[in-house]
């Protein structure tokens, strides 16, 4: 089976570990080999959280610079920071709603201009799908569902050997009951957003 390498970057608290868990469970359901790895620990202290997912026939669970097939960024400046993981053929999906790093909040450092950020990513990679995933999460019922919005977008692109049904089945059975409806709605909103912004 072809190997597909996906990097997900987010700010601590945005729920990317749950997002990768859902994808991993979906892969198990679909009988697709999967390995993933994550660096957490300081996640709740507002740092960057990165997870790597390797689908298909590979033994490694991490992804070297320049070797991601897909980059999913839950926060625009983090997508830009992770650009070294990409190559000219990489597909990038990013949320456009910024979470200001504290350094910027108190006047040290400048947040990148969002138009320029998209231009840069578009220039350097194969394709960029960029939209306000946070707004869609709120529309679905909770900002916490931004991870599901981006999952929906990722699945829509068809780059993973996983169907929307597999992922939704996992959302139904493995995520917190109280959030199932919101999560499913968020997934669908992300799915159609990716179609619109493709």
């Amino acid at each position: 089976m072809k190997t597909t390498r996906v990097i997900i970057v987010a700010v601590g608290g945005q729920g990317n570990l749950l997002a990768s868990k859902v994808l991993g469970e979906a892969a198990l359901l679909a009988d697709v080999p999967v390995r993933m790895s994550e660096i957490h620990g300081m996640a709740q202290r507002g740092g960057v959280v990165e997870s790597a997912m390797v689908f298909g026939d590979a033994q490694s669970s991490i992804i070297s610079n320049g070797e991601a097939d897909v980059l999913v960024g839950f926060e625009p400046s983090e997508s830009l920071r992770a650009l070294n993981k990409c190559n000219a053929k990489t597909l990038v999906i990013t949320n456009l709603s910024p979470l200001m790093p504290f350094t910027v909040n108190i006047g040290n450092g400048v947040y990148p201009d969002l138009d320029r950020l998209q231009e840069l990513i578009r220039e350097k990679t194969a394709k960029l799908i960029a939209f306000n995933a946070s707004a869609l999460a709120k529309e679905a019922g909770s900002i916490m569902a931004v991870n599901m919005v981006l999952l929906g977008a990722l699945i829509q692109t068809g780059t993973l050997p996983l169907s929307a049904d597999h992922v939704k089945e996992v959302i139904r059975t493995k995520t917190k009951k109280a959030f199932t409806t919101i999560n499913l709605k968020a997934f669908d909103l992300g799915f159609s957003a990716a179609r619109q912004h493709a």
Binding site: Q44, R45, G46, G47, S77
Partner: peptide, 12 residues
């Protein structure tokens, strides 16, 4: 690519 502002972990 312009320098992306650092996002070090901080005390909550």
């Amino acid at each position: 690519v312009p320098e992306v502002p650092a996002r070090p972990p901080t005390l909550c």
